[in-house]
Design a binder for these strands. Structure first.
Length: 113
DNA sequence: CCCTTGACTATCT
DNA sequence: GAGATAGCCAAGG
């Protein structure tokens, strides 16, 4: 069954995401060997009752995949921050971030909107 | 079997 | 930079 091999690959990739790091759905899908299956990534994780670090999986924009008013959103955000990931304006800090104002904000606790 | 939906992504306006 | 549109693939009704 496609799903069996797919979800296993997804779980493996998601589980392989280092602490304090994150990957986009498309990135995970590609890494699992299934490009364009970004949507299937979500399904695979949702199906799995395993302890997957799904909070490390976000959208390509750096934002979380859930609506800001969703409980899952809060949970994911909290998990990320507890791993050292800083969120700014509801987005994770991209590697090319160099804005001093944003830097100051994240130092003092970003995402306190 | 056709149509809708979804934890997505990229492009255009 | 936000909103709309199209492409994408699989699952569920």
């Amino acid at each position: 069954m496609f799903q069996a091999k797919f979800d296993t690959a997804i779980w493996d990739v998601v589980s392989s995401i280092p602490y304090g790091q994150f990957m986009s759905y498309g990135q995970v899908a590609k890494a699992a060997g299934y490009p364009r299956h970004a949507r299937m990534v979500s399904r695979a994780m949702s199906r799995s009752d395993k302890k997957l670090p799904w909070h490390r999986v976000i959208k390509s924009d750096g934002t979380l995949a859930f609506p800001a008013d969703s409980d899952y959103y809060q949970q994911q955000k909290a998990s990320l921050m507890s791993e050292g990931v800083v969120l700014l304006n509801g987005k994770v800090i991209p590697p090319d971030n160099d804005e001093p104002e944003d830097l100051d904000a994240l130092i003092w606790g970003a995402d306190s909107l």
